[in-house]
Amino acid sequence: MDKKEFRNCMGRFATGVTVVTTETEGVTHGFTVNSFTSVSLDPPIVLVSVDKNAKALQAMKHNNFIANVLNENQRDTAMHFAGKPKEQLPFEWEETGLGARIKGSLAHIECVPWAEYDGGDHVLFLGEVKAFEYHPGQPLAFYCGQFSNVSPLVQS
């Protein structure tokens, strides 16, 4: 199977963009993720998929994390955590009981570790949701390898 073509095929599935933050030894780490999903409502569990070669992998192991769902105006924040940092931070931090989150995000999902699973070239981290918050606005989307916007459908 051609890995590049499989990736192109999977890129046809539009996703939201999140930055996952976690803290180790008093330092906040973050990375941009589009492999994020809800797994269970009872108990509330979410999943984050992390590449085994990612620097963030060790920071995620057995650790609390916060999924920051980005809004359409946070492209610079997404790029900052995707390895293209800006000289001046394009976001502000907010402290919570489980770590730091990105101020102004569309939603915050704060989690404690639930389980980890091998997922081929990724590790699947499941987190039990301990707190969440969401705000009105439009999400930052990712489609066919680039950022995109979501337009609500007009009800007929």
Rank of each mutant, 00 (worst) to 15 (best):
P44W: 01
P44M: 03
V46Y: 02
L47T: 01
S49V: 04
D51R: 06
D51T: 07
D51Q: 15
N53L: 12
N53M: 12
N53E: 12
A54Y: 09
A54Q: 06
A59P: 04
M60F: 15
M60K: 02
K61I: 10
K61N: 13
K61A: 11
H62R: 15
H62A: 15
N63T: 07
N63R: 14
F65T: 02
I66N: 00
N68M: 08
N68F: 00
V69T: 04
V69L: 13
L70V: 09
Q74P: 09
R75S: 10
R75D: 06
D76R: 14
D76E: 15
A78M: 00
M79L: 13
H80K: 05
A82W: 11
A82I: 01
G83L: 01
K84C: 08
P85Q: 04
K86G: 06
K86D: 14
K86S: 12
E87R: 10
E87K: 13
Q88S: 13
P90M: 08
F91N: 09
E92V: 06
E92N: 14
E92G: 05
W93A: 01
E94R: 12
E94L: 15
T96M: 11
G97W: 11
G97M: 13
G99S: 04
G99M: 01
I102Q: 05
K103A: 15
G104R: 07
L106Y: 05
H108F: 08
I109C: 07
E110I: 00
E110Y: 00
C111H: 00
V112H: 01
V112G: 06
P113R: 01
W114K: 07
W114Y: 14
A115L: 08
E116R: 13
E116W: 03
H122M: 12
V123P: 03
V123K: 08
L124F: 15
L126K: 04
L126Y: 11
E128G: 01
V129E: 08
V129D: 09
V129A: 10
V129H: 07
K130N: 04
K130P: 06
A131C: 09
A131T: 09
E133K: 14
E133I: 00
P136M: 11
G137H: 00
G137L: 05
Q138W: 00
Q138L: 13
P139V: 00
L140K: 02
L140G: 04
F142Q: 02
Y143A: 05
Y143N: 04
C144A: 08
C144W: 08
